[in-house]
Amino acid sequence: MGEFVFFLLALAWPFLAGSYGTGLITEALIFAIAAMSLDLLMGYSGLVSFGHAAFFGVGAYALALSGMKLGLNPWLGILVAVMTSALAALIIGYFCVRVSGVAFIMLTLAFAQLLYSAAVKWRGITGGSDGIGGFDRPQIAGLSLNDPIYMYFACLLGFVLSLWLLRRIINSQFGHALVGLRENETRMRALGFSTDRLKLCAFVLSGAFAGFAGALYAIYNSFISPDALSFAQSGMFLLMVVLGGVGSLLGPAIGAAIFLLMKQFVSSHTEHWLAIVGIIFVCCVMFFRSGVYGFLKQWLERGART
């Protein structure tokens, strides 16, 4: 019911909110996909990736480069972006899933940083820290994503599709196995599951969705720079997930929206946006561990009881 209302609101939004509000929610939808993809790893599989921006950025660069260097149709570019991120996740994941806990965190961080320095240093291909801009936005049947309203609906479609797919994944046998992994890896191994392979599958799926979000992001901005791969960007994704509520899928999406709205608000009032992000991060971890989603759920349940 709630989701239906939400969906109606989402359909009407660009006609209610004007161009500024539309752009803001377009961006929120894109980041929501990335945050949900991270939640698949963090919340459902118990794998905390500190380098999730790597796949987001790879997707974005793959889209930009496939258009600029290969002259590929941007719709195909999205597909290429998803495949490239999945491939990057396969290679990086192959090494990362061998270790667990803290070493996993460090390895994902290190690999993301490797890709970041590659993007900065290979100026010939990536344009270095100046980034790449001015590539074509996709066009279908005369409708161009240059129009912000079509861009919005494309992202809404992408979001709904991702949410639906991720839910199917989580509710599948594979998804249940992932939760089993998070709860008790030793037992899963004893039950005969190949835990490394399960983790790798989750890692690749998660990377593919992040790459999809990255491709949309590149289209939306018509620009991509190494910032999309940075340590800070990985941190923002983590914050969205923690803020929204780990392991609730919709929570991280809400977290992404709150995060962006807050960013707009705070950065128009103060330069110290980064410090505010950090402090919110600290407060969430200390006092608000179940996130907005968990808080709302508790609140609704309490309301239902009385």
Binding site: V48, I105, L238, L239, A275, V277, G278, F281, V285, M286
Partner: peptide, 27 residues
Amino acid sequence: HLYKRDKVDMVLLTFGLSFVFTDLVEW
């Protein structure tokens, strides 16, 4: 206050702090 919780919480906390320090230094 986090020693008894999941180790990941401490990592997240120090991650948040690194943002604060970066801002502080740039300020």
